[in-house]
Design a protein around this nucleic acid. Structure first.
Lengths: 210, 210
DNA sequence: CAGCTTCCATACGGCAGAGTATGGGGTTAC
DNA sequence: GTAACCCCATACTCTGCCGTATGGAAGCTG
C-alpha cells in the first residue's frame, strides 16, 4: 500500500509534503486570490511550513506555476475526454456543458483566475490551449446537430463567450446562485436560446433537403 | 484661457501635472497590466517624474485608485446616458451595443482589467454598479421589444455575458479581430441569435394578443 | 552504529516598492 | 523685493518577498 515514493515518513506526525501537494495548494491559492498572488512565502505560510521545503521540490516560483498549470490542464483534458467518450446526443452534451457552468467547482474558478492573466508568459499558452479545446468540443457538437462548419464555429464561440461571461458575473455576485430557482430558469432560457433554436434550425434544413 | 488652477507654470518647459493626468495615466496602466500592476513608483517612472509629485496630489495608492475608478465610472455613465438619450429603436440600440464590443476602446480594456479583480475592496463596488447599470439598459431595451420582465432580464444577462466573454476571448487572441471579415459575420450571427429572435418572438406574441 | 539520503528549519543578502521628511526652484501676492 | 504658496526632487526607513546557504532531524542501508 505504498502511495508515493515520498510518503516514507509514516511514524512522524506530519506526512511529508509531495510536489503534488504544493501544486494543488498553488491551484487553490490562485483560485482564491489570482495568479499574481501565487508566491513562495505566502503559499508556505498557508501550508504551515517554511520555504526550505519548497526550494527542495521546485527550482522557483515559475517552476511551481508551470507544473501546477500542467496539472490543471491535464485534469481539464481528462474531463473533456470523458465527456466525449460518453455516448450522448449533441443536445444532451450541450445542455450538460451549460449546466456544468453552475457548479462552482475548483476547475472553473481556476479557469476564471487564468482568464485574469492572459498575458502572463506561463499562463497564456495553457489558457489558449484549454479554451481552444473546449470550443472545438462545442463546435463539433453543433456540427453533429446539423449546422454548417462556419455556423457551428460561430455558435460555439457564442456559447463559450456566454459561459466565460457568466463566470465573470458570478464572481461579481450579480447573478442568481445555483441553489435559487431563478438559476434553473436562466439555464433553461440559455439552452432554449442557444441550443434548441439551433436544433430546430437544423431540422428545418433537413426538411428542406428532403 | 486659464485651463485649471494648476496650469500656472506657463514659462517652464513642462506644464505641471494635474491630478487628472495621474488618474488618466493610472487607467491606461491598468488597462495594459491590470489593477495589481498599479503602483506609485511604476506610474511615476511612466510619467518621467518622481514620487514626490504623486504624494503631493494623492494621499496614497488607494486614493489614486479610488479617484481613477470614479473618473472611469463617470465616463461610462455618461456614455450610457448618451445611448439612452439617442432616440433609436430597441433593435438598433441592441445592435449598437453588440457592435460597440468590437472597438478596442480604452473603456472596454479597463472594464476587462476590473473584471480580473472583482474581489478588490475598491474595484468591486464600482464594477458591480457599472455592470448592473449596463444590464438594466439592455433589459429595458428587451422590454421595449415586447418581452416580459423576467424574460427580458434573462436575455439581458445572456447578452451581457456573451459580451464579457467575448472581451475575454479577445484578450486571449482566440477570436477574429474587428478588421477581418469573419468578425462582421460573427457579430451578425450574434444579433441574429440574441436580438432578432427575441424581436420575432415578441411580434409573434403580439399577433397572439390581437 | 556509521553513513547516506530525504525533507525541512533557520539565517542571510538582495531587491522592489510604499510612505515620509525635507529642501529647493518657480510662481504669485502684496 | 519678499513672503507665501505650489509643485517636485532627493534621500531615507520600513516591509514583504525572492532566492541561497547551511545545518539538522528522521529514516533507510550496510
Amino acid at each position: 500500500m505504498k502511495k508515493t515514493a515520498s510518503a516514507k515518513r509514516a511514524s512522524s506526525d506530519r506526512p511529508s509534503l509531495t510536489p503534488a501537494d504544493w501544486e494543488q495548494a498553488a491551484l487553490e491559492l490562485m483560485a482564491e486570490k489570482g495568479v499574481s498572488a501565487l508566491g513562495v512565502e505566502p503559499l508556505a505560510r498557508r501550508l504551515a511550513i517554511t520555504k526550505g521545503s519548497f526550494y527542495w521540490h521546485f527550482s522557483g516560483r515559475d517552476d511551481l506555476l508551470a507544473r501546477a498549470l500542467a496539472r490543471w490542464e491535464n485534469q481539464d483534458r481528462y474531463h473533456l475526454k470523458l465527456a466525449l467518450s460518453a455516448d450522448m446526443q449533441p443536445v444532451e452534451r450541450l445542455s450538460q456543458f451549460v449546466w456544468r457552468t453552475s457548479r462552482q467547482t475548483l476547475t472553473h474558478r481556476i479557469y476564471l483566475a487564468l482568464c485574469a492573466s492572459p498575458r502572463d508568459a506561463l499562463v497564456g499558452p495553457v489558457l489558449r490551449r484549454v479554451t481552444s479545446r473546449r470550443i472545438k468540443y462545442l463546435s463539433a457538437a453543433f456540427r453533429e446537430l446539423g449546422l454548417k462548419t462556419s455556423s457551428a464555429r460561430q455558435r460555439a464561440n457564442l456559447v463559450y463567450s456566454s459561459y466565460v461571461g457568466y463566470l465573470q458575473l458570478q464572481a461579481q455576485g450579480l447573478v442568481p446562485d445555483r441553489d435559487e430557482p431563478a438559476f434553473n430558469d436562466y439555464v433553461e432560457h440559455v439552452i432554449e436560446t442557444l441550443v434548441d433554436v439551433a436544433r430546430r434550425a437544423a431540422e428545418l434544413g433537413e426538411q428542406h433537403q428532403h
